[in-house]
Amino acid sequence: MAEFLWKTIGHHFNFWVYIVLLMLGLWATIAKNNLVKKLMGLSIFQSAIILLYVSIGTKEGATIPILDHHGHIPSESHHADVGPEIAAHGVANPLPHVLMLTAIVVGVATLGVALSLVQAIYRDFGTVEEDELLREIKSLHPDG
């Protein structure tokens, strides 16, 4: 049993964690009544995707993708004294990190706009609870 679990989950542990986080975030985004909580869910959802990407770029025993000042792969990595093909395995994949820098920035920007919308809604309606907002709108426009 333990061996089976290790085979299915152990090698993919990060991916399982990211799925759990993503499901939590998505659930909160859809089901929560409070708009701010919805946005928290959205942030968790986006962060889960960041975890996925960063997990893609990891290599076992590798160090951060910064070379030394002569352009060599840092010597403390495990594979430094072998050929260039293998030596590259001593440095983590930089591409997912670059992509996620973008995704983080996008997430922050979206969250900022969303919070400002929530604040504007609060200014106009006096509430950030979705059901109260719906009731308010219904009372304004009875025909929908």
């Binding site: 993919h12 991916f15 799925i19 990891t58 290599k59």
Partner: peptide, 30 residues
């Protein structure tokens, strides 16, 4: 929401089965 989330999770897990191992330096991405 629960139904939607469970479907999403199931689809994601379906894909994970074919993932390269975590930390594998010879994975397609790496």
């Amino acid at each position: 929401a629960t139904i939607a989330v469970i479907i999403t999770g199931a689809v994601l897990l379906y894909g994970v089965a074919d993932f390269p191992d975590f930390g594998d330096p010879t994975s397609p991405a790496n």
